[in-house]
């Protein structure tokens, strides 16, 4: 096993890991603030992909890519993902604020089904694999005999920038301090005059927006979308969050990248049918050997 055989898989794993990381950060922040494993999170990603598909389809002539369009549609999709997440929180989770976490989790499974079947029942979307309206160019660069496109590089860079910005907001602004305070002790935060519902909404918005960004980038990367695309990536992002230490932004990012590489290398060595087995094997191993994840759950970094 040399770098020449494994190297390309590691790099490909970074692309995959960038998507995982973006989704995992939102997953993890929501867990941090509500202790809720939001099984619907992957479907925010899926629904956002369909939104970007429709808008981009409407504004694109032919298949030639117009980067200006991709950028503004990307931003609109992030907003849509954020609004969807906030709406779900407002309509489903907030009325259950005093309910047991288990009830919330079951409600989250329900929301997941509602979103998937909602998309399924929209005639323009449906159950088929839909080709994404634009195809990125194949121009790029060669590294150790493997060709990478500028788009792939751009995806990883944008993902990292978004995660770093999120990390900065959470750990180095007053708003982020308020999020961490609400995560630590909601009643005490209320007694500080903090509108905790608004902070929770904000966390959902950020999580949904990051999922929206991942949706646009993954759709560009894979070239097709489907109403079930959020299911397994949601579970993988959850795995990534647990792997890194659920509840903190840095952990989710590290966990995402690591899981991407693990899956990609595993696929390269044993074949694609092993991909999910690697992911969930990692989940089981983490829970078994180090339940607090790689970066631990230091309360300080929750949210």
């Amino acid at each position: 096993m040399s770098w020449n055989t494994v190297g390309p898989d590691v790099v490909a794993g970074l692309f995959l890991g960038a998507f995982f990381a973006l989704i995992a950060v939102g997953y993890s922040m929501v867990y941090g603030i509500l202790r809720l494993i939001n099984f619907a999170h992957g479907d925010f990603y899926m629904a956002a992909a369909f939104v970007s598909y429709s808008i981009l389809g409407a504004v694109t002539l032919g298949t030639r890519i117009n980067w200006g369009n991709v950028v503004w549609v990307g931003i609109v999709t992030m907003a849509a993902g954020g609004v969807l997440a906030v709406a779900v929180e407002r309509l489903v989770y907030r009325p259950m604020r005093r309910a047991a976490v288990l009830s919330l989790m079951i409600a989250a499974l329900g929301v997941s089904q509602i979103l998937e079947n909602g998309v399924l029942n929209i005639p323009a979307w449906g159950s088929n694999y839909l080709p994404f309206p634009v195809t990125p160019p194949t121009t790029g660069f060669d590294l150790a005999g493997v060709h990478y496109t500028w788009t792939q590089l751009g995806i990883v860079v944008i993902a990292l920038v978004l995660i770093v910005v999120t990390y900065f907001v959470v750990n180095h602004t007053m708003l982020g301090t308020a999020m961490r305070a609400v995560a630590q002790d909601r009643a005490a935060a209320t007694l500080m005059g903090i509108n905790t519902d608004r902070i929770i909404s904000l966390v959902f918005f950020i999580g949904g927006a990051l999922a929206g960004a991942a949706a646009v980038m993954a759709s560009l990367y894979y070239g097709q979308i489907n109403y079930l695309m959020g299911f397994s990536i949601g579970l993988q992002a959850f795995t990534a969050a647990v792997l890194g230490g659920i509840g903190n932004v840095a952990g989710a990012a590290v966990g995402g990248l690591l899981l991407g590489i693990l899956e990609s290398v595993g696929t390269g060595l044993f074949g694609p049918q092993w991909a999910l087995l690697f992911a969930f094997g990692a989940l089981v191993l983490t829970l078994w050997l180090r339940p607090s994840g790689l970066l631990g759950e230091r309360i300080g970094q929750r949210v």
Binding site: M174, T177, A178, L191, M192, G193, N195
Partner: peptide, 22 residues
């Protein structure tokens, strides 16, 4: 509140600033 309920994982300064943030 009873039991102080300071935010243990925030710094003292963050605890104080937060109380005027809202």
């Amino acid at each position: 509140p009873e039991g102080r309920r300071i935010f243990p994982a925030l710094t003292v300064r963050e605890n104080l600033e937060l109380a005027a943030f809202g």
